[in-house]
């Protein structure tokens, strides 16, 4: 059982290294902006050192942004890993299934109809409901043992529908400035977020994370197929609903404050599998850490890439994510052709 222990050590080691990486990236993220600071300077400022100006910049202006990057990156990575486990499919991810797009529609609807302002709890509420409905609809349309192709096609249809509905909501909005604001918000960004946003998103993200983590062992049993999992005492029907609910809470809460940031959920589990193995239960925490690291890195990148106007982080993650998705399709080509279930 020496090799068994070696695998366990590698998992623990990976988690520690990833956690340290997230901390380091968070410190860098707090130091990036018009006023640059080294990670050490940031650390000093965080704990009450440095000048008042620096403290305001780090603690009040940049800290909410960094907290959101960590929390949202983590929940996206976690949701991706949980969905891949649920569907037993390495190409599953919230963004490919239209969940963030649907969540965005929910939030946009609330804004466009003037039901609430952008800082109200109605926003994450509507986003969560739409995210849940979209994934639920996807599973109903695709059927229980849907193959990859069907899932992707159904996901495409649902995200197109959500996109069209969002466009309609913007179309019908009486104020053109509101429409423009929504359009930018949809691109996905962590800019200018305050602690009010953190408070808006964090409770839902936390609930989503707790829900998803609670199902980890059932997801492992599901590796043997639905029927076998059921014969081992896993209530597969409830498992499916609970995971969708967890994803909806997490993605809905995230989208409500940042707009759509795609592909983190697809990429994070893939980066971790070579390091921690394929067990869907043991993949959850590393994927969350990888998601946090990815979003932090992307959010740092958009601030240091020289450009005339600021690049939205959601645009960057898609620019990186889509080629990665194409690479995965190439790798999984054989399975795709065979329509494997």
């Amino acid at each position: 059982m020496v090799t068994e222990n070696a695998a366990a050590k590698r998992r623990t080691g990976t988690i520690i290294v990833m956690a340290l990486l997230v901390v380091l990236l968070a410190l860098i993220s707090l130091g990036v902006g018009p006023v640059r600071m080294s990670p050490l300077k940031v650390l000093e400022t965080l704990f009450g050192g440095g000048s008042d100006v620096y403290r305001v910049i780090v603690q009040e202006i940049r800290l909410p942004r960094t907290i959101l990057a960590v929390a949202i990156g983590a929940i996206l990575g976690l949701s991706g890993a949980a969905l891949q486990g649920l569907l037993r499919n390495p190409l599953a991810s919230p963004s490919l299934f239209g969940a963030p797009q649907a969540a965005a529609f929910g939030a946009v609807l609330v804004i466009a109809l003037g039901l609430a302002d952008v800082r109200s709890y109605a926003l994450p509420g509507a986003a969560i409901i739409m995210a849940f409905l979209s994934v639920f609809a996807l599973l109903v349309v695709a059927g229980r043992n849907a193959g990859l192709l069907i899932l992707i096609l159904a996901g495409l249809a649902i995200s197109s529908l959500a996109g069209a509905a969002t466009a309609l909501a913007m179309n019908l909005s009486s104020n053109p400035f509101v429409a423009l604001e929504i359009a930018f918000w949809l691109l996905g960004s962590l800019e200018d977020r305050s602690f009010r946003h953190v408070m808006l998103a964090l409770p839902f993200i936390t609930i989503g994370a707790i829900i998803l983590m609670s199902q980890r062992n059932a997801l492992r049993a599901l590796s043997l197929g639905e029927e076998t999992a059921q014969s081992l005492g896993v209530h597969v029907g409830s498992l499916r609903l609970i995971v969708i609910l967890g994803v909806a809470f997490g993605v809905g809460g995230a989208v409500a404050v940042t707009g759509t940031i795609g592909f983190i959920g697809l990429i994070a589990p893939h980066l971790m599998r070579p390091l921690v193995g394929y067990d869907p239960a043991r993949l959850l925490v590393p994927s969350a850490l990888a998601g946090a690291a990815l979003l932090l890195a992307a959010d740092i990148a958009v601030r240091i890439i020289p450009s005339t106007s600021d690049i939205k982080v959601g645009v960057l993650t898609s620019l990186i994510g889509v080629p990665f998705f194409l690479y995965l399709i190439m790798r999984e080509r054989r399975a795709l052709g065979g329509g494997i279930g």
Binding site: E4, R88, R220, A221, S223, L232, Y278, D279, P280
Partner: peptide, 17 residues
């Protein structure tokens, strides 16, 4: 069928679920 490449022992251990 096994959907993920889990180690054989982990699969047998799922019998204790």
């Amino acid at each position: 069928m096994v959907h993920w490449p889990l180690p054989a022992r982990d699969i047998v251990a799922l019998g204790r679920y």
